[in-house]
Design a protein around this nucleic acid. Structure first.
Length: 716
DNA sequence: GAGCACTGC
């Protein structure tokens, strides 16, 4: 007799294909499996392999930690085994697996890390990359590595699992057959806006979302609504406007007033405290319509149950890295067709649904078919160091599924040379080898090594580096009263040298509170973020010990005395001396030192959150910063005051003209340029949809100023 | 004139 779980498994859309799938996996070394959400591929296919392929040791990668854990638990349950026995998982800080484990769920990043000591991934003989269509930086690197490993290990099986229709690219890259599995989706009606250009929509989409939500509430049958917006500010503005309109709503005008009697509005974005997020998943009382206003977090990471209507504004905030200025620009850009389809799909999870697209059909046709992969819009410093570490000497000709801009690779190599991680021939140095073993950016690992070898403050630096590796841990309260209170509380942690030592003071105070959650709440810090930093800190300490780098502590005092600042700042300079800026006298603008030597003039500003904004501006002269982010103007995030003497010695490396490398790039570029041009056609198309580009920052600034102006005008 | 989308080691 079959049990209930068995029946459930056999009712999944993938089940009828079980034998065919096993046969295909046996026959081909690489297989691309395409299937929509709900097909059961993540949980079933690994089990089919365990049943059908003898001696299989399977790894399944997921882009997110939570996905790896929950898939592992599901499969363990279905196989009737304890987690960590036959089925396990492995993510950062957490490994639940034993020598009996035949099936392991990992994050892409974890598998990539294990490749540093084992580039052919010999501990597994079957590797499945799930959610490949998301094209994270890590999956893209894994694509290349797996293709390489397949050539050297004929017995290795690789399965690429993807949800999109953009499968030809995978098919071509891997030269592998495609196996398509139907999904289980309910029908979703698509409603288009009649005629509207992205340009117009961009300044008005918040208001249009408000109107659409009210329209749905007034005319549609009961069912919850999910609205895709771009960010926290837009969400809060939208929520306020909806609630204002709802107050004046006359329910006699509501078509389904017998079953629609009220509404409740929930915002959801990643920095929201977890408690507030919980409410979204609870069922609303009968007659109450739930309106969820979400960022892109709801497109992949978070599933809100019971959604019947989706409102898609057509935009997303996306990071773009500009290699010339090393700035990250966060831009509001039109989404891709693939993203639009995914958003729409959120309406058909439990029953038939509807999607209201705030753009017209023609605008959809103009959207790029897929999102620009992350590897083409990120700093490649860490990736290059990683590839060198695992023995790929010619990073420029590494087999990427979508090659990054060669200039981006060149910039990355140059910066690694500045850090001493590669020599003039682009070979990994001893220092670079050690740096690549730290799970932080090369800038930060350079600081760590220096803090031990040169300045004897490695304990303190582990704390600072850990804090620099986590998301923003400052809570920005909504009310002005709480903002003032937060400001007052933080006063006691400030160090006049700037943010880095201030961070250290905050962490030490938290440590002395016994890592208390209440302390975090009272002082307006995110407990979750500080806790991650605590874990990273201990991971860094053990990496230091592994490389026989001494742990020195400057002081056990909670607040760092001024006499201890120098070694900390000097260590930071060894990683961030390229980010040295000088303040212009009498103004609040800063000039990057290296860029001005090269005759470029970029202006930078202090981020409004920096502790350096609190001190007398005339006392500022030389400053180093962690990174620059461009929203409306280029702001330096996390800054500290330094003496020029601290960085002066380090600039020796920069003055050496990188002749050898420049020459090499000239010849290499000629060879790969045709390929690059081919890429270009596609990329231009992608760019043409974007209203703004990070390249011309002046133009960007002008445009955003105008948009704000128009919006203010509209609100009046 | 002023603030950041989402992941991961």
């Amino acid at each position: 007799m079959k049990n209930k779980m068995q029946e459930q498994r056999e009712s999944l859309p993938i089940f009828p294909f079980k034998q065919d799938l096993i046969a295909a996996i046996r026959e081909y070394q690489i297989l691309v499996v395409v299937g929509d959400t709900g097909s059961g591929k993540t949980t079933q296919l690994p089990q089919y392999i365990l049943e059908g392929i003898p001696n299989a040791i399977v790894a399944v990668t997921q882009p997110r930690r939570i996905a790896a854990i929950s898939a592992a638990y599901r499969v363990a349950e279905e196989t009737g085994t304890k987690i960590g026995d036959l089925v396990g998982y492995s993510i950062r800080f957490e490994k639940v697996a034993s020598k009996n484990t035949k099936l392991q769920f990992l994050t892409d990043g974890t598998l990539l890390r294990t490749c540093t000591t084992d580039p052919l991934i010999s501990q597994f003989n079957c590797i499945m990359l799930d959610e490949s269509h998301e094209r994270s930086l890590d999956t893209d690197v894994l694509f290349g590595l797996l293709k390489r490993a397949c050539k050297q290990r004929p017995e290795l099986k690789v399965i690429i699992m993807s949800a999109t229709l953009d499968i030809e690219k995978f098919q071509d890259f891997f030269d592998a057959p495609v196996f398509s599995v139907p999904g289980r989706m309910f029908e979703v009606d698509v409603l288009w806006q009649k005629t509207i250009k992205f340009q117009t929509l961009k300044t008005t989409f918040v208001q249009r979302c408000v109107e659409t939500v009210m329209h749905i509430h007034k005319t549609e049958e009961p069912g919850d609504v999910l609205v895709f917006l771009t960010g926290q500010q837009e969400i809060e503005r939208c929520a306020k406007n909806i609630l204002d309109l709802h107050k004046e709503l006359n329910y006699n005008l509501v078509r389904h007033r017998d079953s629609v009697k009220d509404m409740v509005v929930y915002p959801i974005y990643s920095s929201l405290e977890t408690l507030q997020q919980k409410a979204i998943f609870e069922k609303t009382p009968k007659g109450v319509r739930k309106i969820v206003l979400a960022t892109n977090i709801a497109q992949t990471s978070v599933t809100v149950p019971g959604i019947r209507y989706v409102v898609d504004c057509g935009f997303v905030k996306q990071k773009m890295y500009d290699h010339k200025t090393h700035m990250d620009a966060l831009l509001v850009v039109p989404i891709s067709q693939a993203a639009a389809t995914q958003r729409a799909g959120r309406a058909g999870r439990t029953e038939n649904g509807k999607v209201y697209r705030l753009y017209c059909k023609e605008a959809f046709q103009e959207m790029s078919p897929t999102t620009v992969p992350e590897i083409q819009r990120s700093s490649l410093l860490g990736t290059i160091l990683y590839l060198l570490k695992i023995g790929i000497k010619d990073v420029l000709n590494f087999d990427f599924i979508d090659a990054p801009d060669p200039e981006l690779v060149q910039t990355g190599l140059k910066q690694l040379f500045y850090l001493g991680a590669v020599d003039k021939e682009n070979r990994l140095t001893h220092l670079g080898k050690i740096m690549s073993d730290f799970p932080v950016s090369p800038f930060l690992s350079r600081c760590l090594i220096s803090s031990s070898q040169d300045f004897q403050c490695s304990d303190e630096m582990c704390t600072i580096v850990a804090l620099l590796s986590v998301e923003d841990f400052y809570i920005q309260p909504r009310s002005e009263k709480d903002q003032a209170l937060a400001e007052e509380k933080r006063q006691e942690f400030y160090d006049s040298s700037g943010d880095h030592v201030t961070f250290l003071n905050i962490y030490n105070a938290w440590r002395d509170s016994g890592y208390s959650q209440d302390w975090c709440r009272d002082n307006f810090f995110h407990y979750r973020a500080l806790n991650v930093a605590k874990n990273i800190r201990s991971q860094l300490l053990s990496a230091m010990k592994q490389h026989k780098l001494e742990i020195y502590s400057l002081t056990h005092k909670q607040k760092i005395p001024p006499s201890c600042r120098q070694p900390i700042l000097k260590s930071l300079c060894s990683g961030f001396y390229m980010n040295t800026v000088k303040k212009q006298k009498g103004k609040t603008v800063f000039y990057p030192y290296i860029a001005s030597l090269e005759g470029q003039s970029t202006l930078l500003f202090l981020s409004p959150q920096s502790s350096l904004t609190k001190i007398d501006q005339d006392r500022l002269d030389w400053v180093i910063f962690n990174d620059v982010q461009f929203v409306t103007r280029p702001n330096m995030r996390i800054t500290s005051r330094i003496d020029f003497e601290m960085v002066k010695v380090l600039f020796g490396r920069v003055d050496i003209k990188h002749h050898k490398m420049e020459e090499e790039f000239q010849t290499i570029r000629e060879v790969i340029d045709p390929m690059h041009n081919e890429e270009h056609g596609l990329r231009n198309e992608v760019h043409s949809n974007q209203v703004e580009r990070p390249v011309d920052l002046v133009e960007l600034k002008r445009k955003s100023a105008r948009e704000r102006f128009l919006e203010r005008k509209k609100q009046k």
